[in-house]
Design a protein around this nucleic acid. Structure first.
Lengths: 359, 359
DNA sequence: GTGAAAGCGCTAACAC
DNA sequence: GTGTTAGCGCTTTCAC
C-alpha cells in the first residue's frame, strides 16, 4: 500500500519528476500532455503521479498559459427562474466543452455589476457572459470589449456596443400579442416591469433596456396598426419588490378608466400581480385579463391556466455559452444561426374585454 | 490626457513601481496594503496605479497567499428553485464577506459531483459547500475533509462524515405533517421523491439521503404513534423526469386501494404531480389531497392553494456560507445557533380522506 | 527526446 | 521604511 497520506503540502510536478526519475520538464510535459515525450517516460510519470495522487495546481497553470478555462457569468438575480434556467444552459454547455463557470449575482444593481465584471477580469476568466442591468451605462462593458476579452451579452443589448448579443427579439412577439389583446377588445393594456428607470415612463424617453423598449415598441406598433393610441399612462416601470408590484396592480385596476388586462414582464412580477388580483377578489379572465412573459410549469396549474409569451430560455443560455466559447477559441461564427424565437401560448387568462358600464 | 491605451499586455506591479520611482516591493506593499509604507510612497504608487489603470492579477496573488477568496458551491440542479434560492443566500453572504462564488451543477449525478469537487479543489477554492447527491458514496467528500479544506454540507448529511452540515431536520416536521394527514382520516399516504436508489423502497433499506430518510422516518413514527402501519407500498423513489413522475402519480391513484393523498418531496416534483392530477380530471382536495415540500409563491395561486412544508431555504444558504467562511477564517462557531426549522402551512389542498366505496 | 534555466505576477523573508 | 532576493507551481524557450 502507498505509504504517505496527503499531509500538509500538495505534491508538485517536481515531486512526480523525482519519483519517476526524470526532469521536471519532462514530467510537466507528460502530465500536461504537450511537447514531445517518449512512451517510456510518459508511463513512468503517469504511474508516479497516480501513486502520489498528484493534482495539478490550476492556478499556476493558468498563470502561465493565460487561460483559466473558466467562464464568468453575471446575472441580475439567480433566484429568478428565468436566470436559473439560462444559467443551467450556460453551465451545461460550458461543461461539455471543458469550461467551468463562475457565477456572480448583482441584484440588478449597476454598481454591483461593474464590480462583478472587474472581479471576474481580475480572476482572469477566459470570457464573460453578462446580462446587463442597463443598456445605457455600459462603460464597464466597453472596457471589457477593449481589453480584448471575449464578451457575450445575454437577454439585453447594450447601446452602441458592438458585442455579440444573444436574445430573442421581442418587438415582433410583443406586437403579435398586443394585436391579440386588441382583437379581444382590450384597449386599456397595462405593462409592469421592474426595470429601474429615472423617469416614469413617457413616450419619447429612451427606455434603459433593450428588452423592455422592444416590448413597448411592439405594443405601440400594434396600437398604431389599428389606428389606436397606446395608453402610456398604463406603463409602470420601477416596480420593485413584491409589495410594490401589488400596490401598482391595485392602482391600475382601480383607475377611473382601469386597465382591462395586465401584462407582467417576467415570472417573478407575475406572481405578485396574480397575488394582488386574487386579493382583490377579481376573477381572471372575467374581471380582468392577464398575460405574462416566460412560460413556467406553474402557469398551467392556475385557474385558469395562463396565457404566456414563452421564450427558449435554456437555449438562450446554451447559445450564449457556445458563442463565447467560439470567440475564446478564435473560431468563426457558425453559419447556422439557431433561431431563438418567442411565441405566444394562448391558454385561458385572456378573455374579452369587460364592457364598460358607462356608455 | 493619458497617453497609452490598454493594448496587449497587462500592467504589473513592476510597471507601477517604475512609474512611481520606487522598488517593486514597495509598490506591491502599497497596492496590497500590507507591510510598512510611507505616506509619500503610498500616494505616488496609488497615483501611478490609477494612471496606468493597474489591476492586480488575482491568480498570481492567490498562488502566493494560498487564498483565492473564492467559495466553491456544488449543487444538483440550479434550475430547481430550491437551489436557486439557497444559492442566492450563499452568494449574498459570500459577497458580504468579500468572497466570490464558483457554482458547479451536477445534474444530481454522482460522477459529476466527484468531478466538480476535484475541479474546485484544483482551482484552490478556499472552501466548499456541497449538497451531496448521495449520503453513502462520500469518499470524495472524505478526501476533501482529510485534505483540510473547509467543507460544509448543504441540505443533506453524509453518513459517517464529521462535517458541519446545514439542514433543517425533517423528522419532526414530517411526523407532524403526517399526523395532520392521519387526523384528516388519511391512511393511504403516498410519497414521491426523485432520489436515485438501487432498491425500490423497502422498510429496512437504508435510504441513500438523509433528507429523505428523515422524512420517511417521520412518517413511520406518526403512523406507529397512532398504532397504524406505514404503507410502504406507496413510497416511490427514483422518480425521474416529469413524464416518469406523472406516470407514477397516475399509478398511485389507480391502485385497487389507491392513495388518498400524495406528498411531493420538492417543488419540481410537485409541478408534475399536479399536472397529472389535473389531467386525470381529479379535483383537489375533493378527490385526492396533496402536500408538498417547499413553499413557493405559485403555491398560493392554484385552486385550491396548496398545503406545504416550508423550509427557510434562503437562510439555509446564508447559514452554510457563514459557517464555511467562519471555518476558512479559523474562527470559532458562534454560540447563537440560528434555528432553522421547517413548518407546516395549512392551506387548501388537504381535505378529509375520501370515503371508500367498499365497506 | 530530454534537461537546464528562465520566466508568469505576485508575496514574503531578509537585510539594510 | 525601503530595496534585494527568493520563491509559489507551472509552462516554455533553448540548447544538447
Amino acid at each position: 500500500m502507498s505509504s504517505n497520506s496527503s499531509r500538509r503540502r500538495d505534491v508538485t510536478v517536481a515531486d512526480v519528476a523525482r519519483a519517476a526519475n526524470v526532469s521536471k520538464a519532462q514530467a510537466a510535459r507528460a502530465l500536461g500532455n504537450y511537447g514531445a515525450v517518449s512512451d517510456d517516460v510518459r508511463e513512468r510519470v503517469l504511474a508516479a503521479a497516480e501513486e502520489l495522487s498528484y493534482r495539478p495546481n490550476e492556478l499556476a497553470r493558468s498563470m502561465n498559459t493565460g487561460k483559466s478555462h473558466t467562464l464568468g457569468v453575471v446575472v441580475g438575480d439567480i433566484e429568478n427562474p428565468h436566470f436559473g434556467l439560462a444559467t443551467r444552459g450556460i453551465s451545461d454547455t460550458a461543461k461539455k466543452s471543458g469550461y467551468n463557470v463562475i457565477l456572480v449575482n448583482t441584484d440588478e444593481e449597476q454598481a454591483a455589476e461593474v464590480d462583478a465584471v472587474q472581479v471576474l477580469l481580475d480572476k482572469r476568466v477566459d470570457g464573460l457572459i453578462v446580462a446587463p442591468a442597463s443598456s445605457t451605462e455600459t462603460e464597464h462593458l466597453q472596457r471589457v470589449y477593449e481589453s480584448g476579452r471575449p464578451l457575450v451579452l445575454l437577454d439585453r443589448a447594450a447601446n452602441g456596443l458592438l458585442v455579440e448579443t444573444v436574445a430573442v427579439n421581442m418587438t415582433g412577439i410583443s406586437q403579435e400579442a398586443t394585436k391579440y389583446l386588441l382583437d379581444s377588445g382590450h384597449r386599456r393594456i397595462a405593462f409592469i416591469s421592474t426595470l429601474k428607470s429615472d423617469s416614469p415612463f413617457s413616450t419619447a424617453a429612451q427606455v434603459d433596456s433593450s428588452q423592455i423598449s422592444e416590448r413597448l415598441d411592439g405594443m405601440r406598433r400594434a396600437f398604431s396598426d389599428n389606428g389606436l393610441t397606446f395608453p402610456h399612462d398604463l406603463v409602470r416601470l420601477n416596480a420593485g419588490d413584491s409589495e410594490s408590484i401589488r400596490h401598482i396592480t391595485r392602482e391600475l385596476l382601480s383607475l377611473p378608466d382601469p386597465a382591462t388586462v395586465v401584462v407582467a414582464s417576467d415570472g417573478l412580477i407575475a406572481l405578485s400581480v396574480l397575488g394582488a388580483i386574487q386579493e382583490l377578489g377579481l376573477v381572471i379572465p372575467r374581471d380582468v385579463s392577464f398575460l405574462m412573459y416566460d412560460d413556467f410549469a406553474w402557469t398551467r396549474l392556475t385557474t385558469p391556466p395562463l396565457t404566456v409569451i414563452a421564450q427558449p430560455v435554456y437555449d438562450i443560455g446554451v447559445t450564449a455559452a457556445n458563442a463565447l466559447i467560439r470567440q475564446i477559441e478564435g473560431r468563426k461564427a457558425a453559419d447556422t444561426a439557431p433561431a431563438l424565437e418567442a411565441r405566444l401560448i394562448q391558454r385561458g387568462s385572456v378573455g374579452p374585454a369587460k364592457v364598460l358600464s358607462n356608455s
